[in-house]
Nucleic acid binder design. Structure first.
Lengths: 255, 255
DNA sequence: CGTATTGTTGACGAGTGTCAAAGACCGTGG
DNA sequence: CCACGGTCTTTGACACTCGTCAACAATACG
């Protein structure tokens, strides 16, 4: 149990799906062992450039984003501990977006060559990565709906709900609160809004008694109502499919 | 060559990446052989339901979409010939979106079991599907940018450019024209706009001499300018990565 | 030929964006 | 310990893109 609590979120992502063989475990361990700390806000991967590796997030928060010609920015997704950023290096000579940490974070390099080894020699692990990618897609679909068909209030509420649940699955929430190291500008660039407007909406949410924040800690005071106004349903995050249930996180949480 | 021109878009998707062994070819052929015709606009997969199969599109146009509680709709993506709809059945017990054909189309069923066989016995094919999924993701990223950070004019222009290039890769364009079996309401639900507004924008584009359409055929009169105003860059569609170049399509095109 | 679907138009209003300035906050160095 | 500079948040006044609603025209379809 203490043994298990020490698992990185990356390893837990696999163990949620099945028990790892010791070979597989070794392999994943080796991957993680070469981790390095990266400073906040300094891009790790640049749109249009070539890389022969992807990044495994071990700690912290990364964003994937694009900058338009006129300087506007759209955040495409967050990358939380246990997720992989930049796998598209596999499919593209020039990756089609940038990646940067929001705060000082810890990442491990995953060389494409190693990735191919993984696919060849540990097909079960390969399948898991494939599944992870499919779940990524489901998340992106939600981002599309949010951007295309929800108003500002619902967009922000929905984003917070999503982040809360994603973090919760990883044992990274604290009761109804979580740490969100994003500026209002970041939130604006996630939701397709502008900074001043995000500010006004956040104030309204506070007045409505839906949330509270000091510093970078957000507390969801009324999650059910937030879910209601934003049309948030957690299925795409928590439905683990095919009868495989997510391992209970309480252990890690209270560790 | 005539041999090759007869290949389905699905097969060609694989052959763009490497030469198929005869075993692999047989396997894919068997998949396609069980195709059936599906009528326009009648949903094939329903949001929240369970399926033990995905669909390979052989002919026609499908959309993936979500309906919100209040009836609004967001189209998430198109599925063109050669693509697979509903692979998320793999990752979710309840798929998180609906799928429907825009017009009478031809699809083949891909049982999940068969999919697992594929992954096990034809790892190279599995890799291709993985790559396809990564490219899906890049396309979804573009949809996010479009919805989040472009105005109505650019959204529509960008959408048309994307569709044109995606179709072109499959040899489904006709010079500067292509068949788009979507109503203005469909376009509105792709771009996060409303039908009347889409209508007005389309008129402006016509007046600006950018495009023309009769019936469901759209002709791009000034693709460079369309690309310019919408910030469209085709890299995410055509960059085939890792030195693998897309097979020339002219052959199929003029067939 | 009707009848349903799709496209088109108008008047109006609401939701967000824009721009610019002022406060709050926070780390840093003197 | 306070002053300073930078980043982030908050505010206001105003403009404008886009949505809403409703009617009508055109087109496809059976």
């Amino acid at each position: 149990m203490t043994e298990l609590a020490k698992r990185s979120p990356f390893l837990r992502g696999f163990e949620q799906l099945f028990a790892l063989s010791s070979d597989e475990l070794d392999f994943l361990h080796r991957l993680e062992s070469q981790s390095k700390e990266v400073p906040a806000r300094r891009p790790l991967l640049g749109d249009g450039k070539s890389y022969d590796y992807a990044l495994i997030v071990l700690q912290g928060w990364l964003i994937e984003y694009k900058i338009l010609r006129d300087g506007r920015r759209q955040v495409l997704n967050f990358r939380l501990p246990g997720e992989i950023a930049g796998i598209d290096s596999l499919a593209y000579a020039a990756i089609p977006h940038s990646v940067a940490p929001l705060v000082t974070s810890k990442v491990a390099v995953l060389p494409l060559e190693t990735f191919h080894d993984l696919q060849r020699e540990y097909p079960r692990l390969g399948s898991v990565l494939f599944l992870m990618t499919l779940r990524e897609e489901a998340i992106l679909h939600q981002w599309e709906v949010r951007l295309g068909r929800r108003d500002a209030y619902a967009r922000i509420a929905h984003l917070f709900m999503e982040l809360y649940r994603r973090l919760h699955l990883r044992g990274l929430t604290d009761g109804p609160s979580f740490h969100l190291p994003a500026t209002q500008e970041d939130i604006a660039d996630c939701t397709g809004l502008t900074t001043p407007y995000v500010n006004r909406i956040l104030q309204r949410m506070r007045r409505d008694g839906l949330l509270r924040f000091d510093g970078q800690v957000i507390e969801l005071l009324d999650a059910p109502h937030l879910a209601e106004v934003s049309g948030f349903k957690p299925g795409y995050i928590e439905d683990w499919g095919n009868g495989i249930q997510p391992q209970r996180m309480e252990q890690a949480h209270q560790a």
